[in-house]
């Protein structure tokens, strides 16, 4: 939503330039501007500065040029963390998107107790992620966990969940999907709610089925909202931290060590502040690239 609003705002501002009171309003923005500069922009400049330095606690700051960036190219653990991040991100974006769109279509219909059902549905995304992750961890327990009990009583083999390298990322994707499908649902639902009634009436008169109306009217019209949800979901999935940190802490071994987890370890376990800063820069560039790619998709389809 944020990005699309920015675009409409750009258009609106061009129109309004003829009678510009803009200068009168700057005192309202200045205090927040100073704080944003101090706690958001300044850290960015500092990160860039640190990324070309070597610094460990107890020693002096040393300029190393691009050495930190070059190190990344040969750091296999880092390169694998990119692969894992992409693997996790693709799954943790697509599943919530599909389920979220389906849920939005359901919640768009009127039915008794809709408000309550919607509130229950968005509970997972409002609940404290750490608290939720801890309870999931207990449910994943291979011997005593409730999930394996349910699987075995249904006649299925037990699952290793977050306790095996092969299954840990799908397990984390499941938790992420449970938690963030509601945000996709809300954004798409907002889109559906803003649609006009007329096309549907016309289609109904022509004898269109519910699926045809969804496929040929709803979907094209809410497409911008779907893309916004997609961008937000993809960015949040790349940034996922709390869930992974608490449930698997990058393990077993390094099987679920995404860029964000590796970054955390480099910065706050090994205290390689220079190297970690360089990773932050690359990480941020990756996030920007993903958002730009997804937005060019939108431009082409719109």
């Amino acid at each position: 939503m944020s990005l699309s609003l920015t675009v409409t705002r750009a258009v609106a501002s061009r129109r309004a330039r003829t009678r510009n009171y803009a200068r009168n309003y700057w005192p309202f923005v200045i205090p927040a501007g100073i704080v944003v500069a101090a706690i958001i922009v300044l850290p960015w400049a500092f990160t860039l500065f640190m990324s070309v330095h070597e610094w460990r606690i107890g020693s002096d700051l040393e300029f190393v040029g691009l050495a930190n960036y070059r190190h990344m190219l040969t750091d296999e653990r880092f390169l694998w963390s990119i692969v894992r991040t992409l693997y996790f991100t693709v799954l943790a974006t697509l599943l919530p998107m599909v389920l979220g769109i389906a849920a939005a279509v359901c919640f768009h219909r009127r039915f008794p107790l809709r408000g309550l059902a919607r509130t229950i549905f968005i509970m997972p995304m409002m609940a404290t992620p750490v608290a939720v992750a801890l309870v999931w961890t207990m449910m994943f327990h291979p011997q005593l966990g409730v999930l394996n009990y349910l699987l075995t009583s249904a006649g299925l083999p037990p699952f290793a969940w977050s306790y095996s390298a092969a299954t840990v990322i799908p397990t984390l994707v499941m938790v992420e999907t449970w938690q963030w499908t509601p945000l996709v649902m809300l954004i798409v639902l907002g889109g559906l709610a803003s649609l006009p009634e007329e096309p549907y009436e016309a289609a109904r008169l022509d004898g269109a089925s519910a699926w045809q109306m969804f496929r040929h009217i709803s979907l094209p019209l809410v497409w911008p909202h779907i893309i916004v949800a997609l961008v937000i979901r993809a960015i949040d999935a790349i940034k996922a931290f709390d869930t992974i940190f608490v449930i698997s802490n990058g393990g077993p071994g390094t099987a679920s060590e995404t860029m964000n987890i590796y970054l955390y370890l480099q910065a706050f376990s090994y205290y390689n502040m220079g190297y970690a800063s360089a990773i932050v820069v690359v990480f941020f560039v990756l996030i920007l690239m993903v958002s730009l790619v997804l937005f060019s998709v939108r431009q082409k389809s719109a």
Partner: peptide
């Protein structure tokens, strides 16, 4: 600018702010 704040991972503020 606000939107960039939304996109930025929390850890990237933490390294500089932690040192400061």
């Amino acid at each position: 600018l606000i939107m960039i704040a939304r996109v930025t991972p929390g850890l990237s503020y933490l390294i500089p702010l932690f040192l400061i």
